Computed example of a mutant assay.
Amino acid sequence: MKLKPLVIGELTARLPIIQGGMGVGISLSSLAGAVAAEGGIGIISTAQIGFKEEDFDKKPLEANLRAIGKHIKRARELAPKGIIGVNIMVATKNYGKYVKEAVSNGIDLIISGAGLPLDLPALAGKTKTKLIPIVSSVKAANIILKMWDKKHGVYPDAFVVEGPKAGGHLGFHLEQLENIEELNYDQEIKDIIKLAKEWEEQKNCSIPVIVAGGIRNREDIDYYMNLGAAGVQIASKFVTTKECDAHINYKNAYLNAKEEDIMIVKSPVGMPGRAIRNKFMEKASLEKIPVTSCHSCLEHCNQRDIPYCITDALINAAKGHVDDALLFCGANAFEQNEIKTVKEVMDELTRDE
């Protein structure tokens, strides 16, 4: 069965694959541009995106906003006809400024999670940029649909439904993540798809649902498409590509990881997350790691209370200092066993049997 294109409003991706946004510095213009050039949708993570800018330590906001424009421009150069998006966390400090900067640079779409993006339509303004919330429950999807309709008179251009096997921050309780098989998450996906279709019929609009979390191969893609999904979002498989923006040490951490090395961690963001067990996580479980400076990354962050600085931990990951880093990953990251090109990964994911 040939895969259908992913249609989001006026945007049509030849392949129904969105590359997940990974920060800090894991999915920037190199990876996003490569995925978009192959017919998928490439996503740039805006999380502390300006960490390589000279003034980042002194002026993180200015550095990040400047870097958003740089990376969008570079991704466009790599994929002139491709679809480029950004991932912006609701929990980000100055969230609205990041949204407006991405829109002003002509980004095709914004994917937004780590909180409910209830004000995203107002922040984006009247624009062609497609707005896509990340949800993990039908309850969250319903709240967004009703609030966007009531407050802004609009509806999401799509939903990304992020399941319990995803990487990074997760919209689940710790107990749920420890008993994934008991969640019956397929039913949640079906319920969200059903809800989206009801709104499509009532409002004469289109709200495709994209499934994310733990997707490994073409068989998984076909499975979720048969459930009614319009596409999938995949992240971990793209970490171990030549084009991925991460340091080779980060990529090797995936290649060297065993299944038992994948663990659920408590993030300073206040949400559970999934990461690779390493020296840093062992140290963080035993003692608080002092925070020496603030990078203005999160809206709600108290230096006195957090176990470690998530910006420092993630920047260390991107730079390859893996023993002092938070190594976010998906549940199946341990299955990666070699460095490939984005084209090779996309061909594997979409090859017809």
Rank of each mutant, 00 (worst) to 15 (best):
A196T: 06
K197R: 15
K197H: 12
E198L: 07
E201A: 04
Q202E: 15
K203S: 01
N204R: 10
N204L: 02
C205D: 04
S206V: 09
S206Y: 12
I207C: 02
V209A: 03
I210F: 08
I210P: 02
V211W: 09
V211F: 09
V211N: 01
A212Q: 06
A212N: 05
A212W: 12
G213T: 12
G214V: 12
G214H: 13
I215D: 03
R216H: 07
N217F: 06
R218F: 10
R218W: 09
E219Y: 07
E219Q: 05
E219R: 06
D220V: 03
I221G: 00
I221K: 01
D222C: 00
Y223L: 00
Y223T: 03
Y223Q: 02
Y224S: 02
N226L: 02
N226F: 03
L227S: 02
A229T: 06
G231I: 07
V232R: 01
Q233H: 07
I234E: 05
S236G: 01
K237S: 04
F238L: 01
F238P: 00
T240N: 02
T240E: 08
T240P: 00
T241C: 03
E243P: 03
E243K: 06
E243M: 06
C244F: 13
D245K: 02
A246N: 05
H247W: 13
H247G: 02
H247S: 04
I248C: 03
N249L: 06
N249I: 10
Y250D: 00
K251M: 10
N252L: 10
A253L: 08
A253S: 15
Y254W: 13
N256G: 05
N256I: 11
N256K: 15
K258D: 13
E259I: 13
E260R: 15
E260D: 15
E260P: 01
D261P: 05
D261G: 03
I262Y: 14
I262E: 08
M263P: 00
I264N: 05
V265Q: 05
K266I: 13
K266V: 08
K266R: 14
K266H: 14
S267A: 11
P268T: 12
P268S: 08
P268I: 14
P268V: 12
V269N: 01
G270H: 10
G270V: 11
G270N: 05
M271V: 09
M271L: 15
P272F: 09
A275I: 12
I276H: 05
R277I: 07
R277T: 06
N278Q: 07
N278M: 04
K279Q: 11
K279R: 14
F280Q: 02
F280H: 01
M281E: 11
M281F: 13
M281D: 03
E282T: 12
E282G: 01
E282K: 14
K283D: 10
S285T: 10
S285F: 12
S285H: 12
S285V: 06
S285K: 14
L286G: 02
L286F: 10
E287V: 15
K288R: 15
K288W: 12
I289V: 14
I289L: 11
I289E: 10
P290W: 14
V291D: 06
V291E: 10
T292W: 11
S293Q: 14
H295S: 02
S296A: 08
S296V: 09
C297A: 08
C297T: 13
E299W: 12
